[in-house]
Design a binder for these strands. Structure first.
Lengths: 113, 113
DNA sequence: TATATAAGCAAGTAAATGCTTGCGCAAATT
DNA sequence: AATTTGCGCAAGCATTTACTTGCTTATATA
């Protein structure tokens, strides 16, 4: 269990997405996370490790507790990759709609960064 | 090879993302796709199958050719899932960092959105 | 018609994934 | 000091994944 370790791989697993969802609101320690799932604490521990490895989670050690905090910057990469195809799924219908979409985007073109 | 078959799983593989990227612009038949990669035609054929299974690719049969067309609607799900966390990575929620951000903003009044 | 060509099917393999149980250690609690 | 609690480490295991080679069936084409 030590090969490919990128964001896409990390979020491919539903349990890991659930973990992210859980700690996005507020940090939880490993056991707290594990309690919400059917699988063993160890299984969760491994998932967390993977999330740490790819940078989606950081640990704040506090006594014997390890609080997992979501650090979702890396998701930006996925967002970017997916976004580049948005028009492909939003305007699959016909040229007309593509055109309208484009107009709308231009009208309130509010791109950050 | 017949278990989980969702979009997240599908795009987890870099080769599959490359295939999507390739046919997003215009359809290619299986061999045409395979030629662009180092792996065997069969390997590509399997990747395509996975993409078909999760709805990201559709086939247009034409004689002995099977043209693969990108059908990226399903990516919307991923986009949505990722987007819900955008603020998490665009504005770190950590109190400390928020504070620092605030200081920086105040210093050289540079807005972000 | 003989023969390329496109591509699925099948079987085999090495590595990765997801999970479990058992153990040990350090920080809290009694 | 003794025990409980949080959690990583390690080994083991069943699947899944990604890929390969070999064979087969259609569809073109010389």
């Amino acid at each position: 269990m030590k090969a490919r370790r990128d964001v896409y791989q990390a979020i491919a697993d539903p349990t890991r997405r659930a973990i992210i969802n859980m700690i996005a609101t507020e940090p939880h320690n490993v056991n707290a996370i594990a309690e919400k799932f059917e699988v063993s604490r160890q299984a969760i521990s491994l998932h967390v490790k993977i999330l740490i490895d790819c940078g989606l989670v950081t640990i704040r050690q506090q006594g014997r507790d390890r609080f997992c905090e979501a650090q979702l910057d890396q998701l930006g990469e996925v967002a970017q990759w997916v976004e580049q195809y948005r028009r492909h799924w939003e305007s699959k219908l016909d040229a007309m709609e593509t055109y309208i979409e484009k107009l709308k985007k231009e009208r309130h073109g509010k791109r950050k960064k």
